[in-house]
Design a protein around this nucleic acid. Structure first.
Length: 435
RNA sequence: GUGGGUAUAGCGUAGCUGGUUAACGCGUCAGUUUGUGGCACUGAAGACCGUCGGUUCGAAUCCGACUAUCCACCCCA
């Protein structure tokens, strides 16, 4: 039954949970709009070079996690491993930076990374993200962060911590990396093998090594914040001030370096903490990560333009909500189910169902040919809120009984063209009494 | 790429000191006389016991490999 096996790291979103995804997406769209962001939709795949140049040749994402296919032989294409590169490409290609700046766009899309899967880590996962281009000002950073913050708070995720850092501009980083090398060099022999190679390639990566020895050595390492140039330093100070004004609590985490090369200055993460009863330890999960990438647009061939953004993992958001006992939405239930008995009644039910549907009511009737009892059972199983039996008696009298499946209450109604309207009133009243 | 766990109907499980028709719960379908669902009862469908190979008279059960999946490292959303 290999055919029936889903590829590793992918998920089916079934009818039972799709309502929750829709609710989440609606919420994201509404909130993003309040901050002036409008939706952009870009292709699922792009030319491979866009990612290798945009995301960075040396990153793990580019080096070993991309799904790359060649088609015509002249180009190779890659399923997007993140949303920023393609979005910026579209913004540049379509001249969106010629509109009033800053340009604000958001996206909801799936990303693909060939990783080993585990909890909260998929090969196809969904991301909500925003990008703002055209402002070098730290208040732009604060605005983007406050959008993420508002989403996380309003949707009801708890135990979330905002961690910020500045990794400076390329100049400060160069100085810092030299300082790091100088610091770690004497410890070279005690470092783990990974870190030995990191020392040459990307010394900043040593800082978040989980190896105990490297970790200990790293504790005394110089911090990037001490190596920021005046401009970067002032930028970071103003960001902190703005966050304070917005009442946004944060911690400074000098070890956030982020895995994508395009970041400059501000980087941040929203991290959830969750106590795992089984393992008896605190687990953390990044649900949102982002930062400023002032060099990316130029790197991709546009006019030098400062920009920033974030990506938010939707599976991780839902997972965290579920761990915290929150459900965003329940699947829709049938409003009314018609139970016809006999051929004539079937015809009547068919017409009634159609007329209710035209009024936007979720109405069903038998399409299997079941008897009364079986139909009632079916209506019960699908959670129908009302049922109406139609047989010879009803056809003759032109009246039928509407039954509230939850309360058992019965109302006699005329089977004429006013039925949809009158049913809608009853249905709304029923909904209200429940809330 | 590295390390560990798991693999039996749609789902959750039992069976695992080898022994013939693989069991149970939930779910699905039909029925308990065409006039009202939830409860109960009856019955049915549904599993080549992850795959391949080995040991044996005999394998879901023991052994090996592979694959998938989960968890952790790495890294990230």
């Amino acid at each position: 039954m290999e055919l029936l096996e889903r590829p590793q790291g992918t998920e089916d979103i079934l009818p039972a949970s799709s309502a929750e995804w829709i609710a989440l997406e609606d919420f994201l769209r509404r909130t993003a709009l309040c901050f002036g962001f409008r939706e952009i939709r870009v292709p699922t795949f792009e030319k491979t070079e866009l990612f290798s140049r945009g995301v960075g040749e040396t990153t793990d994402v580019v080096q070993k996690e991309m799904y790359t296919v060649s088609s015509s032989g002249t180009h190779t294409f890659t399923l997007r491993p993140e949303g920023t590169a393609g979005t910026i490409r579209a913004v540049l290609q379509n001249g969106l930076l010629n509109e009033a700046l800053p340009q604000r766009v958001y996206y909801i899309l799936s990303c693909f990374r060939h990783e080993n899967t585990q909890k909260g880590r998929l090969r196809e996962f969904h991301q909500f993200g925003v990008e703002m281009a055209g402002s070098p000002n730290p208040s732009a950073d604060a605005e983007v962060i406050s959008l993420a913050k508002q989403i996380i708070d309003d949707i009801g995720v708890k135990n979330v911590e905002l961690r910020i850092n500045s990794i400076g501009c390329p100049e400060c980083r160069k100085k810092y990396q030299e300082a790091l090398k100088a610091y770690f060099q004497p410890h070279h022999d005690t470092l783990c093998p990974d870190c030995k190679s990191r020392l040459e390639r990307n010394p900043m990566r040593l800082l978040d090594c989980k190896n105990e020895k490297c970790h200990q050595i790293g504790k005394g390492a110089p911090e990037i914040l001490d190596y920021l140039c005046d401009d970067c330093s002032q930028h970071f100070e103003k960001l902190k001030r703005n966050l304070g004004l917005l009442g946004i609590v944060y911690t400074i985490d000098p070890r956030i370096v982020r895995g994508l090369d395009y970041y400059t200055k501000t980087v941040f993460e929203f991290v959830t903490t969750h106590y795992n009863e089984k393992e008896k330890k605190q687990e953390t999960l990044t649900v949102c990560g982002g930062g400023r990438y002032d060099g990316l647009i130029e790197q991709l061939g546009g006019q030098p333009t400062p920009a920033l953004g974030f990506g938010m993992g939707l599976e991780r958001m839902l997972m965290t909500l579920h761990q915290q006992g929150v459900t965003l939405a329940e699947p829709s239930k049938c409003d009314i189910y018609f139970v016809p008995m006999g051929e004539k009644a079937e015809e009547k039910a068919l017409q009634l169902t159609a007329s209710l549907r035209k009024d936007g009511i979720f109405a069903l009737t038998d399409v299997v040919g079941r008897g009364l009892r079986a139909q009632m059972k079916y209506a019960d199983k699908i959670g129908a809120r009302f049922t109406m039996v139609i047989g010879d008696n009803e056809l003759e009298s032109g009246e039928a009984v509407l039954k509230n499946m939850q309360t058992g209450e019965k109302i006699t109604m005329k089977l004429d063209e006013t039925l949809p309207e009158r049913f809608a009133d009853i249905e709304i009243a029923d909904r209200l009494t429940k809330e």
